[in-house]
Design a protein around this nucleic acid. Structure first.
Lengths: 143, 143
DNA sequence: TATCCTCTTGAGACGGCTTATCAATTTCAA
DNA sequence: TTGAAATTGATAAGCCGTCTCAAGAGGATA
């Protein structure tokens, strides 16, 4: 079973549970979405314009938000725009963000993830996803 | 020397260095800002409406952004709004958020914070602030 | 302290991003 | 195949934050 199919099943499951329907547009957007780690609605709009010139921007926003509800995507506000992160990659990508120049460095740290699990367990939670963003100045912006 | 005075001096210093002026509004907003850990422009607008009904929202935005330039505050996008964090505030907490019922549990974990510093240093960053949110199901919502 | 140049303010216009509206279309269970 | 219900595309509307500009305030200088 490919990764794409796994996500598609998650979507199908969510749709069934909520009396929603699987449409051509939702399949198209999911397929495109799974090819990236994160993307904005606007960027996807341009990316898909070739494949379906009539696909509306509103539909993309609606669909990406649907993916968030289904647990496939996660919205992250950065600057004035919303980034939609692919959660299946997300588990291992946190962000260091320079408040000076906006540079984003991705990192992963198993030890931090382990401690997160520990905190969650201590509070009776089971983690589905998380968001960790460190804001500061990169070496260049400090001078 | 009180904490308020220390921040006020930082502001004065920044103003002097950039040929800016210390106004009644800037003093008022700084005093209010230092009383909180983080606040939105809109919230501060309502908070200060009693003290100065003519204080404009644009002035609050401009002033909070000025504080960011001066290194007193830090802007962080949260939801659709911008949160202005008080950088000198140390008692920072992170959040465990239940995706089932919306319950939010605050926690702090020194070990995680230490590891964050480590990651930042390794990448040449100096952290100003951070945000850590763990999303999952609480014990009640799992059943 | 009075003067004067410059910076700041307040009010509202403006612009970018996202969501709401609604008639036409599509999905899918029966 | 049919029909109720969900979805779509186009665009209007809404929200948040910034810009504009005339009126007002700060503060260096004498």
């Amino acid at each position: 079973m490919t990764k794409t199919m796994k996500e598609m099943d998650v979507l199908r499951d969510h749709l069934a549970k909520h009396q929603l329907k699987l449409t051509r547009q939702r399949e198209l957007i999911l397929t495109a979405f799974l090819r990236q780690e994160h993307i904005t609605a606007e960027a996807m709009y341009h990316q898909l314009a070739k494949k379906d010139p009539h696909l509306g921007l509103a539909t993309i926003y609606r669909t990406l938000n649907l993916f968030c509800d289904a647990g496939i995507a996660q919205a992250r506000h950065f600057g004035t725009q919303t980034q939609y992160d692919n959660i299946s990659h997300k588990g291992h990508h946190d962000h260091l963000i320079c408040t000076g120049c906006g540079t984003i460095v991705e990192f992963e740290n198993c030890e931090i993830e382990r401690l997160q699990e520990e905190v969650a367990t201590k509070n009776g939670f089971v983690i589905q996803t998380h968001r960790l963003e460190l804001y500061g100045l990169c070496s260049r912006c400090r001078h």
